[in-house]
Write a protein that binds this DNA or RNA. Sequence first.
DNA 1: ATATAACATTACGCTACGTAACAAGCAAGT
DNA 2: ACTTGCTTGTTACGTAGCGTAATGTTATAT
Lengths: 263, 263
Amino acid sequence: MNSDERIFSVGEVARSTGLTVRTLQYYDNIGILPTSGRTESGRRYYTEKDIIKLEQIVFYKSLGISLQEIKEELVDSPTPKVLEQMLSSHMDILLRKISSLNLAISIIDVSVTEIRSGNSLPWETLTNLIRTMEGSSLKDWANYDFDSMIYDSLKMKNITTKGTIDIYLSIRSLLAEAAMLSKIGHDPSDTSAQVFAKRWWEFIMSITGGDESVISAFDAVNKNRDEWPEVDRELYRIAEPFIEKALGIYIMKNNITVPASLK
Amino acid sequence: MNSDERIFSVGEVARSTGLTVRTLQYYDNIGILPTSGRTESGRRYYTEKDIIKLEQIVFYKSLGISLQEIKEELVDSPTPKVLEQMLSSHMDILLRKISSLNLAISIIDVSVTEIRSGNSLPWETLTNLIRTMEGSSLKDWANYDFDSMIYDSLKMKNITTKGTIDIYLSIRSLLAEAAMLSKIGHDPSDTSAQVFAKRWWEFIMSITGGDESVISAFDAVNKNRDEWPEVDRELYRIAEPFIEKALGIYIMKNNITVPASLK
DNA sequence: ATATAACATTACGCTACGTAACAAGCAAGT
DNA sequence: ACTTGCTTGTTACGTAGCGTAATGTTATAT
């Protein structure tokens, strides 16, 4: 029909998408977005179709999907099923990254506190703890029937995947912190431990809403850690005695009325 | 004294630290951990001191600090002040990464829901939204006096840095989700929007504890977004009308008793 | 003495481009 | 016609943190 279709230079495409010229050249080189052709003098030009394809590439890339995967699976209009599967499995990767980052932040948080208190950092202990936790299989957790186990009893259905995962990440982050404090040699009654206990308590309250039956249901799930990922069990094993003591002291000190279901 | 100090081969060091031989060779090459010497045949060997140094390197690296920075600032016993400063500033970087990841996860969450509903993805809209948000300056936020602004009124002092940031990240994540739903063309009354409204409401409740005076204080801060980072204001501007409508419907449908301070 | 296993060494490759260094096109001035 | 100067495009090399492959060395078994 219209052989006088508009064509665009690399520069134009770059400006309209916010990418650099070099990036487009690279995309051409690796074949993820070949140009529609070259001018006599050897310069690239693109068509509208190319730009649409590019928009999609940029979208996928902004989610952190590698160019290779985009090229192999996503670049020429995948089926909804494939697309969904790709996105879901990529989400697992992102979740695991977030988990690592959370862990690192917790460690820094604890470390900075230690330094400010004039203590030196127990590298070896910390390093070992990190190694213990790094292997965690978050994927298991994404598939784990968290909803039915806790939320059934919490009567708080209709939660999104992200909501579920957020809770798990929070628990894990707090467990890690407790494990660190314990391993580093903190006493459950000292300031750091009490600040932690406060956060733990508030987290439990925010999830359970303070409802007694809900707390006991949550507690039951907690006890049932056999079904949790291996690494987390290990983490829990290290952290639990410390949490119990610190929380006991916190509750006493602050005259908090504790539901009967929590011994 | 003891010139017969024990020495270790690369292999031994590798096994004891969990690193690979290649990694140690690399560390030698870039000068972050030079060997104590070589045998006649040119093989590396290490001393106890080297291993201690290595432990520290591994610790810093597990936090995501680059080898170069470790080499320049941290590898030969930094002062506590320098160490603290390095860790703190690195935390900012990690927080920004988490923020990006959270955003990506929210987008995938929304995208997968769209796909499952049989809709196609509006790349351009999503891409623009991502670009709008990517520039956000989380660092500003870490320094922002969130504590005094909200927590003073919430009478919930003693919160850690991580606790503060977590709240900000949650807000930002929820705002992003609302903005997306809105931009994609969802109606505040449809299922996706209502699931969102539920989460928003529960988040507000979990922070404020449902206390009326606290909610109004929180609300006041929210209104005062002039002082928030620019990108977040933009985000809020897009999301607010949608949230207001969706929340109104949610509250009506579920017969929730709303504190008077929330109109 | 020699075959083999175990261990160590350097060289090249990877991801997604940024940063030169150089070439080509286009308008205005001479 | 030719130069000057600016914009735009091109390829080549470098980056981080190692993994992998190809090759060389030491210890042990025969």
